[in-house]
């Protein structure tokens, strides 16, 4: 109960903090809009028939992934830089409960990307916004955010151990867009790609959101997969964070000085 309350308070706090950063907001809206525009043109000029809403939702999820990747991947370095890492670790709350709200918030901020690409698509490309299953669509969004947020927890912990979080973030933006089927169906890839996609939250997030919006598929199953993966990520993330904390206390890497 306490933990839940802490996560909720922390999440609100960090969403507010990120929202007040003009820089973060501009980046999380403009980059996805540019990529969405590219995707609209490519799909429109191509010969394959595909609904533009498919493209808009896929581009929006690309934005959610970018925001999680850069936000969560750099979360610990950012806290260290701000001087809040030490204060947070010195608090009695388990550090993983401090970090979860942060990574969830970075995924949540990705909703600005989704909203931006949908609005942009509607205004300039006439993308219709008709939902097959409005209720499932509403459920699929928080499920996707939770899945990506928990994946962010794993990223936060593993990137800080690699020590060059920015390089890892740079590396992982395109491949995850690619192998989670955000714009291109997985059937185009060699067979070994599919198992990789199963363990990545965006795969299920985009399926849940898209199937709920466009119909077909199994949105409920995808929502459950997203939430199930979130639990697995939480387990892995907790172990990694514990390891990081121990290591940091031994090696004195909590502060900048």
């Amino acid at each position: 109960m306490r933990a839940l309350r802490l996560i909720l308070t922390g999440w609100r706090f960090h969403v507010k903090s990120l929202t007040l950063s003009a820089f973060f907001l501009l980046t999380s809206a403009i980059q996805p809009i540019l990529f969405a525009t590219m995707a609209y043109f490519m799909f429109r000029a191509g010969s394959t028939e595909q609904s533009l809403l498919y493209v808009a939702l896929g581009s929006g999820l690309m934005g959610i992934w970018s925001s999680t990747l850069f936000g969560s991947g750099g979360a610990i370095s950012w806290q260290r830089w701000q001087g809040t890492l030490e204060v947070s670790i010195a608090a009695p709350a388990p550090f993983v409960l401090v970090l979860i709200p942060i990574t969830l918030a970075t995924a949540t901020i990705g909703l600005y990307s989704l909203t931006a690409t949908l609005l942009w698509g509607k205004l300039f490309f006439g993308v219709p916004f008709d939902l097959e299953h409005p209720l499932l669509f509403l459920l699929s969004i928080p499920a996707t955010i939770v899945g990506l947020g928990m994946l962010g927890l794993v990223l936060a912990a593993s990137f800080v151990l690699y020590r060059n979080a920015n390089a890892m973030s740079n590396l992982l933006e395109f491949p995850v867009w690619l192998v989670t089927g955000l714009l291109v169906p997985l059937s185009l890839f060699p067979g070994w790609v599919e198992p990789i996609s199963w363990v990545l939250a965006p795969t299920w997030g985009v399926r849940a959101i898209r199937d709920a919006a466009l119909g077909g598929g199994d949105p409920v199953g995808a929502i459950l997969m997203s939430l199930g993966l979130a639990v697995v990520y939480l387990g892995i993330g907790t172990v990694l964070i514990g390891y990081f904390e121990r290591l940091a206390r031994e090696r004195a890497t909590l502060s900048l000085t």
Binding site: R2, R5, L6, T9, G10, F13, K16, S17, L20, S21, Q82, G83, T84, E86, V87, S88, A91, P92, A93, V98
Partner: peptide
């Protein structure tokens, strides 16, 4: 001492509420 260690974009009240939760 020093200027770091607080969340700059938010208010003192926000900061204190947040850390109150962290400190149980």
């Amino acid at each position: 001492g020093g200027e770091r260690g607080v969340y700059e974009r938010l208010s003192a009240l926000d900061n204190l509420r947040y850390f109150a939760e962290l400190y149980g």
